[in-house]
Amino acid sequence: MDKVQILETLREIGLVPVLRAESHSKALALATAIAAGGVTVLEITMTIPGAMHVMRRLAEERPDILIGAGTVLDPETARMCILEGAKFIVSPALNVKTIEMCQRYSIAVLPGALTPTEIVTAWEAGADVIKVFPANAMGGAKYLKSIKAPLPQVELIPTGGVTLDTATEFLAAGSFALGVGADLVDAKAMADGKPELITETARKYLAIVKAFRESQKA
């Protein structure tokens, strides 16, 4: 897929699970449980031990999953992730050099930003979508709606505070997609030997996205 197709897939699925785990084996197990629920987009964070190995394994064994790299803080790491199969790059903060590296490789880039100035700076630098993080620290969906009012052309993915209870509110505020953390990527459920709970939560998130979009067509 080219970058346009990658971004369209992100929008279509409407969810970007932020995968964090204590080991690469646990990360792979979480990825399998999430994908079983129909969510075939994953952000593999660089905080996972052996994160590059996880991306390589998933890229080779699960071509049905759109793999992105998360917590990418610099252009050098972005390049390594791209070479390991990452199809999009996500960061919790804004680094213009990282955006430039992704543009060089025609890879979708989703830098983190919070204030209006940071968001506009990232957009002008060539970001494809802005990760608003931590969204809950600024008031959640209400903050996102306030940002979209003067900047309707800027695509935003809120991360931080997205749950099954708040997902619809974030979508109504104008989210491009939702960055979902521990509410979906439930390490405790996996530790308890209950991956089916994660799979069911994934299905619930997809149902919320589908229901919201259908309501907009009415």
Rank of each mutant, 00 (worst) to 15 (best):
A172C: 07
A31D: 07
S23R: 07
K97R: 15
P116C: 05
G38M: 13
F212K: 01
L178T: 05
L114N: 09
D186Y: 08
I208M: 03
W123D: 02
R62D: 07
A189P: 07
G181C: 09
M101Y: 04
L30F: 06
A127F: 00
L42H: 04
A173Q: 08
T163F: 06
G14P: 13
A137C: 11
L83G: 05
P152R: 06
S23W: 09
P158R: 08
L197G: 00
C102L: 09
L197M: 02
L83K: 10
E76C: 10
E76G: 09
D192M: 08
P134S: 05
V18S: 13
E12R: 06
L197W: 03
M101T: 12
V16E: 06
V16M: 14
R20D: 11
P158K: 11
A113V: 14
A137S: 14
E200A: 14
E60F: 14
F88M: 02
G140H: 06
T163L: 04
I44W: 02
E43S: 08
A207C: 01
E124S: 05
I147Q: 03
D183A: 14
A189W: 04
Q216T: 10
T77R: 03
T77F: 05
L151S: 06
M1H: 12
I99R: 01
K217Q: 02
V120Q: 06
I130V: 12
A108Y: 06
P195V: 15
C102H: 04
A189I: 15
K204P: 08
I208V: 09
P63E: 00
A187T: 08
A173T: 10
R203Q: 11
G160W: 14
S215F: 06
I13K: 12
E118G: 04
Q103W: 05
A93L: 06
P152N: 04
A173P: 12
L171H: 08
P17D: 11
F176M: 12
A113F: 11
A36L: 09
L10H: 03
A127V: 12
A51G: 12
M80C: 09
G181N: 06
K194E: 15
M80V: 13
A177R: 10
P111A: 05
V72C: 05
M55S: 03
A127W: 00
K131E: 08
E60Q: 15
I130P: 02
M190V: 15
A33S: 07
